[in-house]
């Protein structure tokens, strides 16, 4: 009961701090850019539903999924604990009789719904703007965006446990691993969360007529395997972060 009370307080406090942060406000910028793009592109006006769906899918696969889930996770996942490290307020949490796993779980519990809200909410908004192809795309791609955002949030939270400048680490990871390595041929792309997310999207999209990518360039995993891997990454990264966090001395917190 004691830990539950402490944990819920921490979730509430972190949630409130993240919601009213400048980071949340700035996430509206990429979201607005994507919204304007979809509005300008005029998907409802495309007469061939298959062309419209493929066109929208390409945007969601290669632009939206590459940017919004990592950016949302960066703003919330990396900042939930990283913000305390950056502001040097972590000391106030570490001196309380709250187990470290409760602190970590609370930080994740505060950041995760926000990141999901932004990336999945953004997807809903864009798909609604896109009209009929958007309805199909939303149902098909929502799980992928959901699992991707969850995995990114966990990874970036782990970065904030490991690195003082978690945001920079997250940025380096997002840009190099996801944007560069995630788009090169070969198995190296399997190091990127994005690969599994895209596999899940391809798996869902193919049923609706999405043209499968050239296997030489991108060979997607099955939906089941991709989902399992994303969940596995989330769990493994959270457990790893907890193992480090429970023993680590945060000398820099004061």
């Amino acid at each position: 009961m004691t830990y539950l009370r402490a944990g819920t307080t921490l979730v509430f406090t972190t949630f409130r701090r993240l919601v009213w942060s400048v980071g949340t406000l700035m996430l509206l910028f990429p979201l607005a850019a994507c919204t304007l793009f979809v509005a300008r592109r005029g998907y409802p006006q495309i007469s061939d539903p298959l062309v419209a769906f493929n066109s929208l899918s390409n945007f969601l696969l290669y632009i939206y999924a590459s940017f919004m889930p990592p950016l949302a996770a960066l703003a919330f996942g990396a900042q939930s604990l990283g913000g305390d490290r950056e502001d040097r307020t972590l000391v106030f949490l570490l001196i309380r009789p709250v187990p470290r796993w409760v602190i970590l779980a609370a930080k994740f519990a505060a950041a995760w719904p926000l990141a999901i809200c932004v990336s999945c909410g953004g997807l809903a908004l864009l798909c609604r703007l896109a009209g009929p192809p958007g309805s199909i795309a939303f149902a098909a791609y929502l799980p992928a965006i959901f699992y991707m955002t969850t995995a990114y949030t966990a990874v970036f939270l782990a970065f904030s446990v490991l690195f003082r400048h978690a945001v920079i680490a997250a940025l380096v990871y997002s840009l190099f691993m996801e944007v560069l390595l995630g788009n090169v041929p070969g198995i190296i792309k399997k190091l990127a969360v994005n690969y599994y997310g895209r596999s899940l999207m391809f798996d869902a999209g193919v049923d609706h007529g999405l043209v499968a990518p050239d296997p030489q360039w991108f060979e997607p995993l099955s939906g089941f395997a991709a989902r399992g891997t994303l969940l596995g990454i989330t769990l493994a990264v959270l457990v790893g972060a907890w193992l480090v966090f429970r023993l680590r001395e945060y000398e820099d917190s004061a």
Partner: peptide
């Protein structure tokens, strides 16, 4: 702060380029 700057900067220089 670093996070909002990073979000804005990445959006400005990568996302807008792709769009």
């Amino acid at each position: 702060r670093l996070a909002p700057i990073a979000v804005t900067w990445a959006s400005l220089f990568l996302l807008t380029g792709r769009l």
